[in-house]
Nucleic acid binder design. Structure first.
Length: 886
RNA sequence: GGGCGGCUAGCUCAGCUGGUUAGAGCGCCUGGUUUACACCCAGGAGGUCGGGGGUUCGAACCCCUCGCCGCCCACCA
């Protein structure tokens, strides 16, 4: 006998091991099978599973299990990302904590070795956590962005793009992170609103004829000013254009130039120009061929280009000193409080400086064009569709992508420099050497570029590099383009856009046909989960507490939210209970010997109840299938929940009880077989969402019933014919359900004790209802807890009436009736009907409605009005009788 | 400044291309030792669908507008 509840802890590891060992995670080899492929968004090796991963991977697993059961050659390809900055940070911190040498002290090779060591120890954490969620990835194909194959792909891509002039080296301002001392790309910069000040500084004219006032939020940058710009049509300054001001503190004369960039409306209308430390000023400087004076070192301390007293000072210290000096010089013209956005590094959290360096860039603008087109013409579909707008907006305004990073952990840039600075970009050092030999006519020492590539450069190749590209592998031929990508919208620019660009450029095909953006998980208050807020929910703790299936079901059910998911443990508990409900339904089947019957044909059952539940099962299977096909995950769980709990358990099993306990052996046998079949289908339909519970029940039911071959996981998804839906059975069971519900309502409202076996009479019933009444007499007696069922001309005096279709039911329970309560009950029902009649009559009385609304809507309202009037009349009559009797 | 999403029962959310009395889960209240399940069963209360205007025979749904809440992009004169 099954236990009363499912014990996930005992079962999950065993089942997962069984699945994995069976080889069923790998796509089936059958060449005729249609491929279905997905690549995992590779988690960082530094990561541990958070609830966002849990959601994202649950949805992927639901989808891949579903497609696998449909007979597809389903591949879910897993792997991890080396995560340049994040990993380097973690390892550096660990080294520091352990009192080791710093990265720079130990040197590049030693440090990299340490990172690999760390990866071997801790890098697999998240992968094993995915297993605990039940993820059915094909681990035999697991990849890592820094493994040999992927590294080769990265070099190939870099070299190819370089030869195509789509990768180039350039000296320009970059977003510089002084903490990590590396360039970062635009999207790694996070704007934060902060309180700040505008300082108004006076710059005296060189000829002593006056001054010009400029404003800044970054006073220290004035040390690098090389001009003051005014608008060419600004009357206030027209006369000053071409003159010079003497830059205070520094003493350098700098010109007053005319440029449209200066906005007469803002501040004084004059703006200081610091080409080396401001993106806009850099452009102005270019236009006017201004000197570019870099005043910062890589740690954002003032360098030798600043006056001596500032050298070596931190930028913020220097800022204070500059202000003090202006004040002392009597040139501070005012301070204004302001709230403004300041760029911060998304990883380091420090203020980013625009900084002039040589870096490698990808010509994203060119690569973006085919990627835009592919979405426009639907070769790749983004869902929900509103993300297309975001995608287009970004792609159409894309800037060159800075891909070099001054880090050690990552793909080293395959560029070598000759003694004269000549650059050789080749896939290997040997190739670079031979290119150099050809160029110089002799062997010259080469020096490889010190930098590594942005992590997203390698992740951008993920859908094809993981399948073996640039080799022409079978996997590549079979599984590329991948079918669906499920990921978070927070990385639409970082990742999705780059994969589109790279995939199209190098394979000529889109990397995936569909992208489904899942919601973001928040806590119960709607706040983004973060360690600092202390509101993180650890999915593994939730798995421990409720089981993986309950968490999976919850996440799947809540995934419909457009933007974010607020998770509460109550909800998980509720879905855990749902699993228990199904477990106990199986227990019921076991106790009642509902076991699989070989050769059972659901289309041939005779009993109304069985024809009905077969039809309901067909409908449920259709609903779940359609939902999963369209990534409507919440609809899928909704359909499963309602079918299993509210249809199968609440009604089918209850209605089956009298048959199973009765002595019509043929009916009993058929009902047993049908119930067992429904349970099997339910297990199959639920399996993608709740794999552990269902697989365990599949096994257990096989043990108490007929044995069966194989795992639930690899069974064929139910494809049931519509012909099994029987409208007559539907109507009949529907009527029965209504009748029983009415009886229960009356009993509950009249406080009739369960032990009281009330007699029921039915009057005014149509022949069809009479037949139903006699056919299901036993059922009605038991589920309604009735003493007898009879037909009558009219409801007996003192009985409590209710409406069931065209008929009036009446329960003879006078001894329990509180007249006032009954009067209130009937009064309320009559009132509701009156309201309905009033509304409907008014509608029908409106000639415009009758003339313009579709005929069927008008007809519907007519029927409705007639029914309501009829029901109201019957209840009023009953109420009157009640009052005369008393 | 530009864009996106949200505002529906005490809470968390469904409500597809406008058409009965707006639904679910949780919570709450009442009743229940009905041998599958108290992680349960039966029943109930609870909403002028953020405000205002419009289109329509008819609006939670379409349009305009305002108000909050959240996110993304741009902006450090």
């Amino acid at each position: 006998m099954l236990e009363k509840t499912f014990d996930p802890k005992a079962v999950e590891p065993r089942l997962y091991a069984m699945w994995e060992a069976s080889g069923a995670f790998a796509p089936i080899a059958d060449p005729a099978a249609e491929p279905f492929s997905m690549v995992i968004p590779p988690p960082n090796i530094t990561g541990s599973l958070h609830i966002g991963h849990a959601l994202n991977n649950t949805l992927q697993d639901v989808l891949v299990r579903f497609q696998r059961m449909r007979g597809k050659a389903a591949l879910w390809l897993p792997g991890t990302d080396h995560a340049g900055i994040a990993t380097q940070m973690v390892v550096e911190r660990q080294l520091a904590e352990a009192g080791n040498m710093s990265r720079r002290d130990m040197g590049r090779d030693a440090f990299i070795a340490k990172v690999w060591e760390w990866k071997a120890q801790s890098g697999g954490t998240i992968v094993n956590q995915l297993r605990r969620m039940g993820a059915s990835c094909d681990w035999s194909r697991e990849r890592f962005t820094l493994d040999d194959g992927l590294s080769a792909a990265v070099r190939k891509v870099f070299v190819t793009l370089h030869k195509q002039k789509l990768i180039y080296r350039d000296k320009r301002l970059v977003n510089w992170d002084p903490q990590f001392q590396t360039a970062i790309s635009d999207i790694e910069v996070e704007q934060r609103e902060v309180e700040g000040n505008y300082w108004h500084f006076a710059y005296p004219l060189e000829d002593g004829s006056g001054e010009i006032v400029v404003a800044t939020t970054r006073p220290e940058t004035m040390l690098g000013d090389t001009a003051v710009a005014v608008h060419p049509s600004d009357e206030r300054y027209k006369a000053l254009i071409g003159k010079c001001v003497r830059l205070p503190i520094v003493g350098r004369p700098i010109p007053i130039i005319a440029d449209d960039y200066a906005d007469p409306e803002k501040g004084s209308g004059a703006v200081k120009i610091t080409p080396a430390h401001d993106f806009n000023d850099f452009q102005v400087g270019k236009r006017h061929k201004l000197p570019v004076i870099n005043i910062l070192d890589p740690q954002a301390r003032l360098n030798e280009n600043a006056p001596e007293e500032f050298r070596g000072l931190d930028r913020f210290v220097a800022r204070k000193r500059v202000i003090e000096q202006f004040e002392a010089l009597g040139l501070l013209r005012g301070v204004e409080k302001t709230r403004h956005a300041v760029p911060h590094g998304d990883r380091s959290g420090v203020v980013i400086e625009p900084y002039l360096t040589d870096q490698w860039y990808v010509d994203a603008k060119t690569l973006a064009q085919p990627a835009i087109k592919a979405v426009e013409d639907g070769r790749t579909v983004l869902e929900p569709a509103n993300w297309e707008k975001t995608y287009y907006e970004w792609m159409r305004n894309i800037e060159p992508w800075c891909i070099s990073r001054q880090l050690w952990w990552g793909h080293r840039i395959p560029a070598w420099y000759g003694p004269d600075g000549k650059i050789f970009v080749e896939e290997t050092e040997e190739a670079a050497k031979s290119a150099a030999r050809e160029h110089y006519g002799r062997d010259e020492p080469l020096r490889q570029d010190e930098d590594v590539l942005d992590t997203w450069f390698s992740s951008g190749l993920w859908p094809f590099s993981t399948l073996g590209w640039p080799e022409k592998t079978q996997d590549l031929a079979r599984f590329y383009p991948t079918h669906t990508l499920i990921t978070g919208f927070d990385i639409i620019f970082y990742w999705v856009a780059r994969m589109m660009m790279m995939g199209l450029h190098f394979t000529g095909q889109v990397p995936f046909k569909r992208v489904f953006f899942n919601a973001l998980v928040r806590d119960a208050q709607g706040a983004k989960m973060s360690k600092s807020k202390g509101n993180v929910m650890d999915p593994l703790e939730l798995v421990d507490a409720y089981g993986a299936d309950a968490l999976r079901f919850t996440l799947t059910a809540m995934s419909g939210q457009a933007r974010d998911i607020k998770l509460s443990t109550q909800r998980i508990e509720g879905y855990r209970n749902f699993g228990t409900k199904l477990w106990n339904a199986a227990r019921f089947c076991q106790m009642n010997e509902c076991i699989r019957t070989p050769g059972f044909d659901p289309g041939a059952v005779k009993q109304t109840l069985n024809r009905w539940i077969v039809g309901e099962t067909v409908k449920a299977a259709k609903a779940v299938t359609q939902a999963l096909e369209t990534c409507a995950f919440d609809d899928a769980t909704g359909a499963l929940y309602r079918f299993i709990w509210n249809v199968f358990c609440d009604w089918h099993l209850e209605l089956a009880k009298p048959i199973l306990n009765g002595d019509d052996e043929a009916a009993k046998a058929e009902t047993r077989a049908t119930t067992a079949w429904v349970l099997d289908v339910a297990l199959q339909l639920l399996h993608p969402v709740s794999p552990f519970l269902t697989e365990e029940l599949w096994d257990k039911t096989a043990q108490f019933g007929h044995g069966r071959e194989g795992m639930l996981m690899t069974t064929r998804w139910p494809d049931l014919p519509d012909a099994w839906i029987d409208p007559e059975a539907e109507a009949e069971i529907g009527w029965l359900v209504d009748l029983i519900t009415e009886i229960r309502q009356v009993r509950a409202e009249m406080n009739v004790p369960p032990s009281a076996r009330a007699p029921l009479t039915l009057s005014g019933a149509a022949p069809e209802a009479k037949q139903r009444l006699s056919r299901h007499r036993d059922l009605i007696l038991s589920l309604g807890r009735l003493g007898s069922v009879a037909e009558a001309e009219s409801p007996p005096a003192g009985a409590v009436p209710f409406v069931i279709g065209e008929a009036t039911g009446a329960l003879a329970i006078a001894q329990f009736v509180d007249l006032a309560a009954e009067r209130a009950r009937l009064g309320k029902e009559i009132g509701a009907l009156a309201g309905d009649i009033d509304r409907t009559a008014k509608k029908l009385g409106n000639p415009d409605f009758v003339a313009r609304a579709p005929e069927e809507v008008v007809e519907e309202n007519r029927e409705r009005l007639a029914e309501a009037e009829n029901a109201k009349a019957r209840l009023e009559a009953a109420l009157k009788r009640l009052e005369t009797v008393s």
